[in-house]
Design a protein around this nucleic acid. Structure first.
Length: 242
DNA sequence: AAAAGATTCAACCGCTCGCTT
DNA sequence: TAAGCGAGCGGTTGAATCTTT
């Protein structure tokens, strides 16, 4: 009857419980299957999202720590909007969470900038001549594609992405440089070399007990960066590897 | 104390990629 | 080898919550 209608919107506690049970039974891979057999009337996609973003046992909740914030900034500068990739370096944090954080952070930053620069500047000084003094909250319209999230990181990565290395300043000198300079002023480099491996939780500042707990017990990584997967530990429940 | 505005967070959508047949 | 299918990713939206006036 009405059973076939796909449910949308917020999840109820009951649904959560059901989903957790079925994930424990069948693992966190076969989402369509889980969606069907659980009787949740949700799409597999929806189930996966709920699990990944909310129900996953290794998730940290609450505010980002300053360390995490810095890491996000650093990694975003390096990889751009590769949220899942960034998330892999922040155990317990989801791509969605980081994405949201970034969005908030960027907006804040943009507004601070707007406030910081006087209205008069925008009319005359900022027109076209200067590339270093220009403080613009939005990315340059060079590609015509200006996602809300983009603060230059993506472009930097896009420019260099093929080579796998970030462009540092590259001589373009467009306004977002200022943005990152600004950030650099308030944060110190987390990792010197900043190789992909280098940032894999070797940062001493992150070695709080809780982080160790996360990385030692709740999470484990694969060998290479790309193949890194989360393996939540759940008391003898090895449901994720199957 | 109430209303308006701003911010945060959870969830959905569409696209892409990789695996299977 | 190509087609189909499912999972994952990034972008976007809207509701809930918090803050300010």
């Amino acid at each position: 009857m009405m059973q076939d209608e796909i449910r949308k919107g917020p999840w109820t506690e009951k649904e959560d419980l059901l989903l957790v049970n079925f994930v424990h039974l069948f693992g966190d891979r076969r989402w369509d299957f889980i969606a069907k057999v659980s009787g949740l009337n949700r799409t597999g996609k929806s189930c996966r999202l709920r699990w990944v973003n909310y129900l996953h046992p290794g998730l940290k909740r609450g505010k980002m720590t300053p360390q995490e914030e810095r890491l996000v900034l650093e990694l975003h500068a390096k990889w751009g909007n590769r949220w899942s990739r960034i998330a892999r370096n922040l155990p317990g944090r989801t791509d969605n969470e980081i994405k949201n954080y970034w969005r908030t952070h960027t907006r804040k930053k943009a507004q601070e900038r707007k406030r910081a620069m006087s209205p008069s500047l925008s009319s005359s000084n900022c027109s076209s001549s200067s590339n270093t003094t220009t403080v613009n909250s939005s990315p340059p319209p060079r590609t015509g594609e200006t996602s809300f999230y983009d603060t230059g990181g993506l472009e930097q990565v896009a420019l260099a992405g093929k080579n796998g290395e970030a462009v540092q300043g590259g001589g373009k000198g467009y306004s977002t440089d200022d943005f990152w300079k600004d950030i650099e002023n308030t944060i110190e480099p987390l990792c010197d070399g900043f190789s992909e491996e280098g940032c894999k939780f070797s940062c001493p500042s992150l070695a709080s007990p809780s982080w160790e707990y996360c990385s030692d017990t709740l999470w484990s990584f694969g060998d290479d960066e790309e193949g890194k997967i989360f393996l939540p530990y759940d008391e003898g429940t090895t449901f994720l590897t199957g």
